[in-house]
């Protein structure tokens, strides 16, 4: 499956990955509309920064995913075909148990109004996920096995 690896020696902390992630998960997928007119979805990638070091981190799609086991409603599942840890916002009740157990802090409350979480879905509609495609310094690398 596709996986994203961060490279902190190349990350400049510009947070363009966060911006483009938000756009890609917005209703219109238009940068101006997403930030100015619509309810803004939660970012699914987080730039961690301390001093001069930074890197971007999103869901690792763990093999033993604690979020899947802990999910109260059954909304967090592994896609049998792609292996991606997918989240069904229709079935999510917003109990925040996944936020409580995710070792990477990669699940967030989603800002789109309803009480649900959001997480990286590896951009199923794109060949290359938006964060990787829009990184100006190749600090996010897509590996595919």
């Amino acid at each position: 499956m596709k996986r994203i690896i961060p490279r902190e020696e190349y990350c400049i902390g510009c947070r363009l990955c966060e911006i483009h992630c938000i756009v890609q998960h917005s209703k219109s997928r238009n940068i101006i509309k997403a930030f100015k007119k619509e309810r803004r979805p939660a970012k699914r990638v987080e730039v961690e920064e301390h001093g001069h070091v930074s890197f971007a981190l999103q869901c690792r799609h763990c093999e033993e995913a604690p979020c899947i086991t802990a999910c109260l409603s059954g909304a967090m599942q592994r896609d049998g075909v792609s292996g991606v840890v997918v989240h069904d916002s229709q079935r999510c009740v917003g109990c925040w148990t996944c936020i409580l157990v995710c070792p990477y802090g990669a699940v967030r409350r989603d800002g789109e109004g309803k009480k649900v979480v959001g997480k990286c879905d590896l951009c199923p509609d794109l060949e290359v996920p938006a964060c990787v495609a829009n990184c100006p310094n190749e600090a996010l690398v897509l590996v595919e096995e």
Binding site: I5, P6, E46, E48, E49, H50, F55, L57, R60, Y104
Partner: peptide, 23 residues
């Protein structure tokens, strides 16, 4: 802003990069 950025680099790489590479 607490996160893996505050971990010693080896611990951070183990959790983030090597875990993925291992998989």
């Amino acid at each position: 802003g607490f996160g893996h950025i505050h971990f010693p680099r080896s611990m951070r790489e183990e959790r983030i990069v090597e875990a993925v590479a291992g998989l």
